[in-house]
Each structure stands twice: as structure tokens, then as C-alpha cells.
């Protein structure tokens, strides 16, 4: 027996309803992770948005003496790199690039993954077989290698990098959504829609799709985190957008100086860590909120 109290009034969608119905204790525990994650994300977004205001110039211009350690020169709170560029400016401008790539790649993966997953799960049979074989094809390839090949072919722009990362990430979303769609497809309200004479398109859009999306909410934030990591890896390998700065390329550039000036890798590395951490915490927090253990009857 569940002791949760039903909600009243107009909450759009089942997710919010479930949030409201979560018993207080778990909500608190879940939202601590969520809160920290959201704060981290808000900080990164704020930095990315204000980068142009705080550091209006091109972050790639030389600003002062090379290799200034952080905290030595008041003009460069985070120091300068081996070419005398302001680390703080570079870090701030890179935030935007990382977020853009992460979110764009995740959006692409979500769109393709949700569509493929719902169709495979709802129709089953041959449609399912074909779509799932294709997704396996993507999953069995080493995804970083595949991304690198795509970037090499398409050229290193922010758009092509996002595309390459997104197109390798959709199968995990597709599998997730497919599993839900298979479950929903067997529920009586889908059968009821069939008995009313509803067509497949309407059933999928009206009943199956909206009820299959709950796990995607959690997966999406983790997907962004993964995409940011992939972008960092690409940039580190020198395959990033040569016209933009990114944390990954900063790490790559700072690598030769690791012994003498480790801050040049540690600072952007830490930024990647915190951003990815932020998205992961959001994901885990949402997971705790959306899938509370059912109370014992």
C-alpha cells in the first residue's frame, strides 16, 4: 500500500506528478545531488554567458608575460599560459564551446534515439530488427574512433563535432526508449486505442511516446556529460575546432608543460571535471526523484 498522497490540479505530465508524490525523505536526499548539480551547471552557464562581457577581446591574443602562475599577477588571477594568454579569459570562453557541443550532440542523439526507439518498440517485428541491428552496428564500433573518423572527414567545426558525437551516442537512448515503448505497448490503454479504431501514428504520438520518455530525462543529462567529455578528448587530440578555444584543447596544449606549470592542464581539467560532475549529479538526482523505491505494502 502506498502512502503517498495524490496530487490535485493541473500538473502537466506524469513526471511532475511523480515528483510531487515522492515521500519527503527521499525527495530531500534526491534533491541534494540535484541541487549541487544545478548549482554547478548554473555557474558554468553564467561563466559562458558572461565571457564576452568580462573578457571582450580574443582570448587567443597575448595578454601578458608567458607562464605567470595563478595568484602572482592581479591582472591574471588564473595566470597566463606559455604564450602569455590570459588563462581566465580562455577558460571562460571555452565554457560556451563545451556546453554548446555537449547540448547540441545530446539533442541530436535524443531526437534520433527517441524516434528509433519508439518505432522499434511499438511496431516490433521487422522494424524492430532492422533498427536494433543498426544501433548495434553503432554500439560495437569504438565510438571515439568513429567520432574521430567522422570529424576528419567532415572537418573540425563545432557543428560537425556535435554531429559526430551525437550520431555515435543515439543507440543507448534508442535502447532505453525501446524498452519503455515495448512495456507501454502491452498496456491496456494502447489496446483500448486500437479498439477505438485509432491509427498507428496517432497511437504512437498520443499514447506511446509521452509515456515512454521518463527514463530519457535522466539519460539526457548524463548524455550531455558524456558529450562534453568526448569533445574534450577530441580537442585534446588536436581535432577540435581550430577557430575556437576549448578546455580539451587547453589541456592538450598544456601537456608539454605538465612538470613545470601543471596549472595549465589542471585548471581546464578541473573545469571539465566540475561540468561533467554537475550533469552527472543532475542525472542521479533526477533518477532518485523519478524512481523512488516503491514503499512496502
Amino acid at each position: 500500500m502506498s502512502l503517498s498522497t495524490p496530487t490535485h490540479g493541473g500538473m502537466p505530465g506524469g513526471i511532475l506528478q511523480r515528483l510531487m508524490r515522492t515521500p519527503g525523505l527521499r525527495r530531500l536526499r534526491g534533491s541534494r545531488a540535484l541541487l549541487v548539480g544545478l548549482l554547478l551547471l548554473a555557474a558554468v552557464v553564467a561563466v559562458a554567458l558572461s565571457a564576452g562581457l568580462l573578457y571582450p577581446g580574443d582570448p587567443r591574443d597575448m595578454a601578458g608575460p608567458a607562464g605567470t602562475w595563478p595568484g602572482i599577477d592581479a591582472r591574471f588571477p588564473l595566470g597566463t599560459d606559455m604564450l602569455g594568454r590570459d588563462m581566465a579569459a580562455a577558460m571562460a570562453h571555452s565554457a560556451g564551446t563545451s556546453l554548446t557541443v555537449g547540448i547540441a550532440a545530446a539533442t541530436l542523439a535524443l531526437l534520433v534515439g527517441i524516434a528509433a526507439g519508439v518505432l522499434a518498440g511499438y511496431f516490433g517485428g521487422a522494424v524492430d530488427d532492422v533498427l536494433m541491428r543498426i544501433s548495434e552496428l553503432f554500439q560495437t564500433m569504438p565510438s571515439l574512433l568513429f567520432t574521430i573518423i567522422l570529424v576528419v572527414i567532415l572537418g573540425p567545426t563545432t557543428a560537425s563535432i556535435s554531429f559526430a558525437i551525437g550520431i555515435t551516442a543515439w543507440p543507448q537512448i534508442a535502447r532505453l526508449v525501446r524498452a519503455e515503448a515495448v512495456r507501454v505497448r502491452r498496456l491496456d490503454y494502447v489496446d483500448a486505442a486500437v479498439t477505438l479504431g485509432m491509427g498507428h501514428g496517432r497511437i504512437v504520438l498520443l499514447h506511446v511516446l509521452p509515456n515512454s520518455l521518463a527514463p530519457v530525462v535522466v539519460a539526457a543529462s548524463i548524455l550531455v556529460a558524456q558529450a562534453i567529455l568526448s569533445d574534450a578528448s577530441l580537442s585534446f587530440l588536436g581535432l577540435g575546432d581550430p577557430n575556437g578555444m576549448s578546455w580539451g584543447s587547453m589541456v592538450g596544449a598544456g601537456r608539454p608543460m605538465l612538470r613545470t606549470a601543471w596549472y595549465m592542464t589542471a585548471l581546464p581539467g578541473g573545469a571539465i571535471f566540475l561540468t561533467v560532475m554537475g550533469f552527472m549529479l543532475i542525472g542521479n538526482g533526477l533518477n532518485d526523484l523519478l524512481n523512488p523505491r516503491t514503499p512496502v505494502r
Binding site: M1, V296, R297
Partner: peptide, 20 residues
Amino acid sequence: ESGCGKSMTALALTRLVAPP
């Protein structure tokens, strides 16, 4: 009927009632 507390009674006899 469901919700009358009969299953909870069984759990309480064996002290298996979950917190809270």
C-alpha cells in the same frame, strides 16, 4: 478490503514494517 490494514498487521507482527 484493500487498505484496511490487514497486510500491515501481518508485517507488524513480524516487525517487518519499513521505515518511516
